[in-house]
Simulated assay, not measured.
Amino acid sequence: MQKLTRIITLTVALLMITGCSYFGVYKRDLPQGNLVTEGMVEQLQTGMNRQQVVGLMGSPLLEAPFDASQWDYVYRLDEAYGGVEQRRVTLTFAGGRVVEIEREGDFSKAPSLSDERGIGPDNETVSTTQGAPLDNVTPDRP
């Protein structure tokens, strides 16, 4: 009986130890920040005002808290089973106009964004239901 208890205990312990490492943990790519592409950066020019920059690049991820003359657009992609890709564009303003554009990172290739298949409706389903009338839908009212 003691042998059976030892064998069962050892088997359970081995299963618990190997169970955690045998089947890897699911990871996914984690994009963060402003998506900055080479085309967007090429359109930036010194002399542009803040509204033109926001229209082209969107609102900045970081704005200097004590001096609003510097905007940072940062994009970071932490690949699940790979490395980290980071891009940064820093714009310096003087008198409401861009005076300096600094680039950091590799803008030559497009960022690899994974396709989220299996989550949410398919593109075909969305396109066929967008024009459908909402007959029996009543709004929620408090």
Rank of each mutant, 00 (worst) to 15 (best):
Q43W: 02
P60K: 13
G120S: 14
D72A: 09
L62H: 12
R28Y: 10
Y81D: 15
L61Y: 12
V89Y: 00
L15H: 02
P111M: 05
L134R: 10
P111E: 04
A110Y: 02
V12R: 04
L91P: 00
T37E: 08
P133T: 13
Q45T: 03
V137Y: 12
E63F: 05
R88G: 01
W71S: 05
R141E: 05
D106V: 01
T9D: 02
K3P: 03
M1T: 11
A68R: 13
G95T: 07
D29V: 10
V12F: 13
C20K: 03
R97F: 02
K109A: 15
L35E: 09
G83V: 04
A132T: 10
I17S: 10
P65E: 07
V25Y: 06
G95F: 06
E116N: 15
P31K: 05
Q43H: 04
M57P: 03
P31W: 02
D67T: 02
S21T: 14
A13L: 12
N136E: 06
V12I: 10
E63A: 13
V41Y: 00
S127T: 12
G118D: 12
G95N: 10
G82N: 12
E79L: 11
E42Q: 05
L134W: 06
D29C: 08
S114P: 14
I119L: 13
Y81C: 04
Y22F: 14
L44C: 01
A110H: 04
N123F: 15
Q2Y: 08
Y26W: 07
N34L: 07
R6I: 15
A110K: 09
I119C: 07
G58M: 11
K27Q: 14
P65D: 09
G19R: 13
P111G: 09
V126L: 15
E85P: 00
S112L: 12
D135C: 00
K27Y: 07
R117Q: 11
L14F: 09
D78W: 11
T125V: 12
I119Q: 13
Q52V: 02
F107C: 07
P60I: 02
L14S: 07
V74F: 08
G39E: 07
P65N: 03
R117A: 14
I17N: 04
T125P: 00
E100A: 15
N49A: 01
P31V: 10
A68Q: 11
M48N: 03
T125K: 15
S108R: 14
E102P: 00
T46P: 03
I101Q: 11
D29I: 08
D106E: 12
P139S: 07
L91I: 03
S112C: 04
L134K: 11
G82A: 15
V53P: 05
T11R: 01
T90I: 06
G39P: 00
G83N: 12
S112N: 13
E63T: 11
Q86S: 11
F66K: 13
I119G: 01
R6A: 11
L62C: 06
D135Q: 04
E116P: 09
V25R: 07
G39C: 00
L91Y: 03
G19S: 09
L15N: 10
S21Y: 14
V41E: 05
G58Y: 09
L10E: 05
Y73M: 04
M48K: 04
A94V: 05
L44T: 02
Q45G: 01
K3V: 04
L35Q: 02
M48G: 02
M16D: 00
